[in-house]
């Protein structure tokens, strides 16, 4: 069981709330001012087929997810279909799992996710290096067209190479002077 599964299980095991049972018909004056025309949600929300049912619709058949899905603690059960793009992984994935221990109403949830996004950007660069791929910011930021991406990569590599060589030379010079 993953950490997110544990968090989801904990959420679903939360004690149910005992609601006070009040029969509206016993309340003096119940409904005397009800006016169906007083509906600021019209026409966005169509109440014409409202049968009073709330959460007891027949759910669609559930997708069997092939990857880890983080789930809001505000759900009683997982929605029937899920997106399987880019499952949580690495350090950013750990932070995302931590974020999903908070509800959507807590800033901690969103701030941790924003932090994870920034970490994920660095992870993306490291992933490129691991695959032997030179980052190509000129192309990725849209400054050059697709057909000129190789020249942009070479230009970036040249700039980085010159910068690194310069730093090495500077360091050697300082070392030499300090001797």
């Amino acid at each position: 069981m993953t950490q997110s599964d544990k968090a989801n299980a904990a959420a679903s095991e939360a004690p149910s709330v005992a609601y006070p049972s009040i029969d509206p018909a016993t309340v003096v004056g119940w409904g005397v001012d009800a006016d169906p025309k007083n509906d600021p949600t019209w026409p966005i929300r169509d109440r014409s087929g409202d049968d009073g049912a709330r959460a007891d619709w027949t759910p669609p058949s559930a997708q069997v997810a092939g990857v880890e899905i983080l789930q809001s603690v505000e759900y009683g059960r997982r929605p029937a279909v899920v997106g399987e793009s880019t499952p949580p992984a690495g350090l950013s994935g750990m932070v995302r799992r931590a974020a999903f221990r908070f509800s959507e109403g807590q800033w901690g949830h969103w701030l941790l996710l924003m932090g994870a996004d920034r970490l994920n950007t660095v992870e993306g660069l490291l992933q490129d290096f691991r695959r032997g791929r030179m980052p190509n910011p000129l192309f990725e930021m849209g400054f050059v067209k697709h057909e000129r991406r190789h020249e942009a990569a070479l230009a970036t590599a040249a700039v980085v190479g010159v910068a690194v060589a310069g730093l090495v030379l500077l360091n050697r010079r300082r070392h030499h002077l300090s001797l």
Binding site: R54, W57, P59, P60, L70, S72, Y75, P79, V82
Partner: peptide, 22 residues
């Protein structure tokens, strides 16, 4: 087919977003 879709609130479907309820 969920409560929200039945009311035409197709941007608020309750069966398509595991990560957020809003």
């Amino acid at each position: 087919q969920c409560h929200f879709c039945k009311q035409g609130l197709f941007g608020n479907c309750h069966e398509s977003n595991a990560q957020a309820t809003a």
